[in-house]
């Protein structure tokens, strides 16, 4: 128990990240469920970004970039799985056909993929830009 109740000097009692994590999850779920491309991609980016941010802030990581890129890879894998299951054969033509066709499941897969690619690019870019050691 602290000797000065209500006044802790151990850690700060404020963080902007929880709210952003929730907003990210909210928009990703809404966007993916109702297949609204910008909301899904924006929400997923916000979600993975906020996870990287909150992990960084909590001191579990020194930099957010690896985690951001890793989550991006996870989104890519998930999106690729969702898309590939809708293909008859994995060829460029088949992908082009299925992306052009209004198939709800492929739409969600593409949303996941794009969000994943953007996260990987930002994560890798951040790593590159901050390549000197801390």
């Amino acid at each position: 128990m602290d000797d000065q109740p209500g006044l802790s000097d151990q850690y700060r009692m404020s963080s902007p990240w929880p709210l952003i994590v929730v907003l990210g999850l909210l928009f990703s779920e809404l966007g993916l469920l109702f297949n609204v491309f910008p909301v899904a991609v924006g929400g997923l980016l916000l979600f993975v970004g906020a996870i990287a941010g909150i992990v960084l802030e909590s001191g579990y990581a020194d930099r957010p970039w690896n985690l951001l890129a890793g989550l991006g890879v996870a989104l890519c894998v998930l999106g690729a799985l969702v898309t590939v299951t809708q293909l008859d054969s994995v060829t460029f033509d088949a992908i082009a056909t299925v992306v052009g066709r209004p198939n709800g499941i492929v739409g969600r897969g593409v949303e996941l993929l794009i969000a994943g690619i953007v996260s990987v690019v930002i994560g890798a870019g951040g790593r590159f830009a901050e390549s000197e050691s801390i």
């Binding site: 006044l7 802790s8 151990q10 850690y11 700060r12 404020s14 001191g59």
Partner: peptide, 22 residues
């Protein structure tokens, strides 16, 4: 209001109080 703990695990450092809430 610098974060006590300096990037390490939370609550490792102490010794000065600050306004911990906006």
């Amino acid at each position: 209001t610098p974060l006590a703990g300096g990037g390490g695990a939370v609550g490792e450092e102490s010794g000065y109080a600050h306004d911990e809430k906006p």
